[in-house]
Design a protein around this nucleic acid. Sequence first.
DNA 1: CACCTTAGTCGAACACGTTCAAAAACCATT
DNA 2: AATGGTTTTTGAACGTGTTCGACTAAGGTG
Lengths: 225, 225
Amino acid sequence: MAVTSKGEATRAAIFQAALDLFRVHGYEATTMRAIADRAGVSLGSSYHYYPSKEHLILELYSHLHVLHREACAPVLAREHSLAGRLRGVLRAIVMTCEPFHEVAGSLFSTVADPRSPLNPFGAESTAMRNQVIGLYAEVVRDSDARLAADVAAELPRLLWLYQMGVLYFWIMDGSPGRLQTLELIDETADLIVRLVSLANLPMLRQPRRRALALVRAIAGEPPDN
Amino acid sequence: MAVTSKGEATRAAIFQAALDLFRVHGYEATTMRAIADRAGVSLGSSYHYYPSKEHLILELYSHLHVLHREACAPVLAREHSLAGRLRGVLRAIVMTCEPFHEVAGSLFSTVADPRSPLNPFGAESTAMRNQVIGLYAEVVRDSDARLAADVAAELPRLLWLYQMGVLYFWIMDGSPGRLQTLELIDETADLIVRLVSLANLPMLRQPRRRALALVRAIAGEPPDN
DNA sequence: CACCTTAGTCGAACACGTTCAAAAACCATT
DNA sequence: AATGGTTTTTGAACGTGTTCGACTAAGGTG
């Protein structure tokens, strides 16, 4: 779509204009005509670089993922408790996405559609999914928590799912300063760590085995990293 | 919106036309003009009865909810174990919605948007939400499971959330006969009952309290039924 | 330099959801 | 029957995302 450096510059200008307008007016109130105007190009040109308005969100999506990894790095280097690492990573994602809170709803509903190539569960986003799961594998691996091997094996995938739940909660969260989301993160991160470390209790052993078997059966080894 | 019986008939015709077209072409590919045409009314009339295209989905929802309640009745009358009742209700919802499986994806992504008036967590769907939560209250109340009072109080709401998770899984499920979803239901229903009945263990008491407090803090008493 | 290919640009036109003011049909009351 | 108010219906607009065919600019090739 953008082959020459001139094309690349135009593409960047369109994305930047969209970003600015999204921030100020939100996603829906921002028209493609306004984006084109601000970028100094014609309406048609915008569609030369981005096949649809939603594709501008997609660009934002990968943009945010990079920022998130950067935001995570310090806390992952510093913190060693599993709960602390989890909290840190989740807080980081909320902070990173905060400027786009209003846009996030549209992003989510776009991506939630099973037919969307960007659906987090779909085949086409395996790479991105594995990156995020890999992040949580790192969260688990370098923590000082002592976990059973079978739990440790499936935990990253489950934490990835957990992150998606938290993000959806955040999208819906209208509380000032997004305090509800922060409370949710603090409480659930703690709860998860507590439950995971209790998983060795004799009484929990059988449910744990079946639960993990279910996760394996569904998420399957085939598309594994 | 529909005061006279004639109005009621028109409203029904529009809904029926929408249903037919949704089934065949899906939600997005169905235009309001096509619906109006098929119903034999003008475009404007459709908007007299349904403020927006999305409101047709809402009607479909309550339509399906009625069918679901009917499909549930036998198993709820017969079955007394909590796990059996849960399984029954969830299988029933999957069966009921099956004719709309292909459409469900676009419906979901439309409804998942926080700005949509149909968002399940939003204010406008409180009535529908409480109906479903009420169904799960019935599932819990008339079962022979012995639950702590605090757990029993929050469980219906949590089961409603669980149902939404299962439904999203079902939407994504492309397996023949939807067998994966059925397996998920069987396993998780069992797992939930097991965990809930273990909630009285001394070691689980404190996490349980905090978890329930969190649910209360977030779902809140204010918009309670 | 002339030519050709391709990337980039443009803006008019289209389709669809939605709005609105006015017409028509309907119904109760006089 | 006539009147007045309410419900229902209509179709022409409007705004917006998207498409498309044509034009321009740039760069390589003989």
